[in-house]
Nucleic acid binder design. Structure first.
Lengths: 88, 88
DNA sequence: ATGGGTTCATACGGTTCA
DNA sequence: TGAACCGTATGAACCCAT
């Protein structure tokens, strides 16, 4: 739809590419969430835990980026769960 | 990218090799910053604290070189060590 | 067409060595 | 110190099931 073509990623404000894990988001945030949704505990913010996430800064802090993914409504249950959890 | 191939290191004007610690810089300044970012306090300028940093002079004063790294926007939080500092 | 996963080239941080 | 090398995270292209 045309509305979507100008849509912005709710996480980083890059160009959105549709709904991913329930949230209007860009391809990079989609990939990021798929990779990190289950790594929550092992991530740590190198700053003070309040990083502003933008197209330019999204790479700097995984912890805050992931937090924003969750805060924006992304849900990890949508994933195949084959991640076998890392915590085996 | 081609633009990057002629790029100059913001710190010493040597040939830049991409972004390191958030600043367009050369391999030597990258290595220098990694080694010294957390040694700020123990460094001392042997001159008057206003050393001009170039490809030729960068070796002479660590203090002023490090200052220029910070002034140019390098951020030490990008280094792994820092996470340990913060947590412990 | 949409939204999952898979794959691959690249960027960049760390490690090693002359 | 600086250069070569290595490993991991990122993001874009692509594939597949619905």
């Amino acid at each position: 739809m045309d509305t979507l073509s100008h849509a912005k990623c709710v996480i980083c404000n890059d160009r959105a590419k549709g709904y991913n894990f329930n949230v209007l988001s860009c391809v990079s945030c989609k990939a990021f969430f798929r990779r990190n949704a289950f790594r929550e505990d092992s991530l740590l913010c190198p700053f003070v835990g309040k990083c502003n996430i933008t197209l330019l800064t999204r790479k700097f802090c995984q912890k805050c980026r992931l937090n924003k993914c969750f805060a924006s409504g992304m849900i990890k249950e949508k994933q195949k769960q084959n991640k076998d959890h890392i915590n085996t």
